[in-house]
Design a protein around this nucleic acid. Structure first.
Lengths: 137, 137
DNA sequence: GTACTTGCAAACAGTTTGCATAGGC
DNA sequence: GCCTATGCAAACTGTTTGCAAGTAC
């Protein structure tokens, strides 16, 4: 799970600069369970850092994902979403309201990712598609 | 698994017209294990139907997915991909060459999709990300 | 000082839409 | 004849890139 401290130490160790923009974006993501889109991160971070640009958000999110600090989710139709929780869990995408929920699946549900048919997987993503409770009523 | 016959009967039953364009697109997809992008379907179908438009491909793919005849895969960076095999299986995305492979997982690996936290899932998608054999060498 | 980072704008890619035409039933 | 489907172009949305200015180390 992403924390301000883990992000700082990981980035510093990798020789990446801790700029105010990056710390601000990390701050928006820490503890965030809403799986925000880039646009949402941008909007939130911009409130406290008005000159922040979208390109920087894209760069930073990419950077954080490359260092394994966050996950990039591509399951929804409205663009890339971010998940600061890198521990194994599944995602439920509501096809009505586009919300994304975390789902804790039994450990047995996670397939073994190592060397299937010569494919070396570094990440497994389990996605459920359907309707959330709010949209079904 | 999509066949020309299953597509025709399903669409006819739904009162949807069997136009040459649609049959052509179905034809491109039947037995296709390459998980083609829209663009690739367009290029292939256009060889035999030169006036076919991209918009029609998008419409038709959407139509086929809505009727449960194919799956739309959103896991890769280069846009929507189509899978004519709707039976449960996982997908392996090569982050190097963008290829998508089918992976047969043990039945136990498929999580129970019914009513998790009030979420009613109609589809489960398991995606592996990593490098394929060809790209590792 | 050097190399990395930012911000802006423009470019881009994939996707969707409006509308007139064509065609199936 | 009615209604759906097609094709084209334009619009849109999300994302990436080039480059000049700024900033951490």
């Amino acid at each position: 799970m992403l924390t301000a401290e883990s992000a700082q130490s990981a980035l510093q160790r990798a020789g990446v600069r801790l700029t105010p923009q990056r710390l601000m974006i990390v701050d928006v993501l820490v503890g965030n369970r809403t799986h925000p889109t880039i646009e949402q991160i941008y909007a939130t971070a911009r409130q406290r850092y008005p000159t922040l640009s979208l390109a920087t958000v894209y760069h930073t999110v990419d950077l954080l994902a490359k260092h394994g600090l966050i996950l990039e989710l591509r399951g929804s139709k409205d663009g890339l979403r971010c998940d600061p929780d890198t521990a194994p869990h599944a995602h439920a995408y509501c096809t009505e309201c586009n919300a994304v929920y975390d789902i804790i699946l039994p450990a047995a549900a996670a397939p073994d990712a190592s060397a299937l048919d010569g494919f070396r997987a570094t990440r497994v993503d389990i996605s459920l598609y359907g309707e959330c409770q709010a949209c079904r009523t």
